[in-house]
Design a protein around this nucleic acid. Sequence first.
DNA 1: ACACGTTAAATCACGGCCTGAAGAAAGCCC
DNA 2: GGGCTTTCTTCAGGCCGTGATTTAACGTGT
Lengths: 412, 412
Amino acid sequence: MAERGKQTVRDLRRGSRSTLLQRLYFEGPLSRQELGQISGLSAGSVSNVIGELLADGLVEECGSVESDGGRPRILLQVPPDRAHLVGVDVGETQVRVALFDLGLTELAASDHPLSDCGHDSDHVVELILTGLAEVLHATGTDPATVLGVGVGVPGIVEQGDPGTDGLGIVVHSQTVDWDAVPLGRMLRAGTDLPLYVDNGAKTLGQAEMWFGAGRGARHAVVALFGSGVGACVIAEGARFRGATSSAGEWGHTKVHVGGRLCRCGSRGCLEAYVGAEALVERWGRAPAGSSEKAGLAALLAAAEAGEQDAVELLAEAAEYFGAAIADLINLFNPERIVIGGWAGLMLGPRLLPAIRDAATAYALRFPRAQTSIDLGLLGPDAVTVGAATLPLWHFLQSGGELPARMSAAATG
Amino acid sequence: MAERGKQTVRDLRRGSRSTLLQRLYFEGPLSRQELGQISGLSAGSVSNVIGELLADGLVEECGSVESDGGRPRILLQVPPDRAHLVGVDVGETQVRVALFDLGLTELAASDHPLSDCGHDSDHVVELILTGLAEVLHATGTDPATVLGVGVGVPGIVEQGDPGTDGLGIVVHSQTVDWDAVPLGRMLRAGTDLPLYVDNGAKTLGQAEMWFGAGRGARHAVVALFGSGVGACVIAEGARFRGATSSAGEWGHTKVHVGGRLCRCGSRGCLEAYVGAEALVERWGRAPAGSSEKAGLAALLAAAEAGEQDAVELLAEAAEYFGAAIADLINLFNPERIVIGGWAGLMLGPRLLPAIRDAATAYALRFPRAQTSIDLGLLGPDAVTVGAATLPLWHFLQSGGELPARMSAAATG
DNA sequence: ACACGTTAAATCACGGCCTGAAGAAAGCCC
DNA sequence: GGGCTTTCTTCAGGCCGTGATTTAACGTGT
């Protein structure tokens, strides 16, 4: 149980590189001095490791800061243009491919609507690959500088054996009718870049954790409230994946056993009570033919205008949502809950107080007291950013391991 | 995020010791040869580390086995009598203290009923300390050979800062009315032994994972079904604790928002539908004045005899239980669910098929397909065993670190 | 200008670690 | 007794992080 495999003396160096690289990446320009303080490494080791990273071009000096009277500190940072990342969002209505630099600044993006052919997997793969080619071409980016492609998909992702170059990645989705689609193999046929695939809600949560309302929390749950409902659980600073990477499927938690029919085929799911699709449908007064987003906006406007049925519907949704959040608090004991997703951001300002109250009423006192409930800061566009964090995470975790094809071209 | 702190070259040795010790502990007598194979360490290192452990008396040779034609393998094992462990169960009706050897064989136990003074914390602490003295005296065990005392309590345990010798341990329990009881400090006043405290349901789950139906699983949830309902979540082979160690409070998951009133004060909790206390109360036909256990047995007998209301009540309980297990499957994506606890073991044989069906009906297809649902193998007595695994786990994890007072007396 | 104090970074000997190869040990078979 | 096989031990070699020492780079005061 929990035996971490064999460790050679070399893994220490990888660990040190990783620690330093992560600190520099997340905590901005830092001197060797400060790096030693916060990482616990000795000054000698910091110098040594930073020297290596400098030689690899993974770190660069950027100015200095005087230190009253003594030698000035040299600031170090991870050069944002040292490498690139690709994030893909396979959404309900479109496939979006974005190219980022190492600092996750978006350099280019490509959108392809998904109206005609639906979610036929061959079509989606084709769109991903064309999008990838487009963003690379538009920016004149050498594919050799891309650390990897992260893809957020709707559905459950089976990661397969690691080390098989992503070939084992398989996607299951009851909602878009993907049954064991071998996305890894299919994408691999069109690109040599390292592939990372995860659920889109999870990647959005990842983005919120890194750059949004989740920053700094080590134990958090990002509750994603959109057309459906999902969650991304972070424990000890890393995604909680479970045995086959599908942990956090919150939308089909039973809040009312034997209750409303859900699109998953079961009854009483949270999603059937608070999902945007369900809300709009239950309200039944959205302008015919309008989008789900417009429908929800109309519902919200009606409630703001004081229309009784809209007010009640939203109040009920807040109660169910809060109760389900209470379940998350009881089960995961997070220090923070972040409510994200487009519907969450739209309804959040109105519902947050009621959600907090419901969570307090339904959760156990002690874990509830340890938890704050806040709105997310990132819009749904952040799915691509989150997807791009997948290869980025691998990069940082491995201590700055570059694909073989890139290591020669240390541009600094 | 997820930066594991600084590692010195010495931590490697600790890791190796820990790995080897764990393998030997769990996988019985093994030769250096086999140890090298399964741990990934080189033969040289194994010899080296085992030499250390032998010198510390943490490992002993135990016979040899011929190896067709070559030098025979020398088998190694962890000597069960090298040290002792204490497990304490602070239950609903009694305080039970048990002394174990390193192999978790029970050497002595002491029970004290908790009828008169209820759960007054001073009284409980007193009983624990007398029980501890009793088992040590009865077996003539030198306290210096005790690795630590593990305590399972009803309620939520706040671990406090590690390294403070357990002084920060505080217990909260809405059911037995403990509000921030500083159990660590209180016990520390009466003993110098290392202290470990956790929720009793969690320790029972721990026992089930180590020696019961959970053996070998790296991701599992032990669902504990007794008077109340709880869960112990194991991820990556270790307990999932969350931010403040209270993760896994499953009994108050909302299965029916706004439904039955629960003893926690909230409505619609799982426990209010399937907890033994709730079932017996709802049935309403248990012999007056009988214990909860007897009441549940009577309910079961009535159902076996075909009495309609009993049959229906149990069928409903199975459905709710299965639905709540479906939530666990969706949220934690375990490879195994173990149903334990005294009520679980009592009703399990009858309800398991229905629970499995309900879980299948309510959970998402993919994660459900990855999970097996089985009955636990250990009775509720295992709480003490589970509690004793707390110090044992520390011992194995640290690579066989002995309290200072013991290391001199390497008896071999 | 110039020495002095101060702070930051680089260097280096040291003790530890794991590996891998070579050697020693312990049994069997002929 | 001489091979042969298999297991275990020993040891050189390459790395690693530490901590002390040295060097670098800057203010300040004279």
